[in-house]
């Protein structure tokens, strides 16, 4: 069971309080009506689904109800950082793990 740090509550809480909501940093096309079927399908269905470093959205469903981002290793399940909506990840490469530990400490 994961132990997630909610960047809004400022606390680690149990996974049972959260829901995962898939890949982060996807943005809805500015002009949906101008999208081809292929572009629209890519937006709603196609995902990077990496083995390794993954930026994903979680929601603190039974806590503050805020959505936030998590950088997580989908192989080891190690959580490298959590950060608020609208901000960019600090870790974009698994080799930056060391940096993450410093960030969390």
């Amino acid at each position: 069971m994961f132990y997630l740090f909610c960047p809004y509550c400022g606390e680690h809480r149990e996974e049972e309080e959260f829901h995962p909501r898939g890949q982060a940093h996807l943005s809805r096309p500015e002009d949906p009506d101008g999208c081809t079927d292929e572009e629209w399908g890519d937006f709603i269905y196609f995902r990077t689904n990496p083995r390794g470093l993954h930026h994903e959205i979680w929601v603190h469903a039974v806590g503050c109800r805020k959505f936030f981002n998590v950088t997580r290793d989908t192989q080891s399940y190690e959580i490298l950082e959590t950060y608020r909506m609208g901000s960019a990840p600090r870790i974009t490469d698994l080799n930056d793990k060391q940096q993450s530990r410093e960030v969390q400490a």
Binding site: M1, F2, E15, E16, H19, P20, G22, Q23, N49, R51, H54, E56, R72, T74, Q75, S76, Y77
Partner: peptide, 12 residues
């Protein structure tokens, strides 16, 4: 619900 390649899931 989360993506995972670890061949294990969460206890709940």
């Amino acid at each position: 619900g989360y993506n995972g390649y670890g061949q294990r899931g969460s206890y709940p």
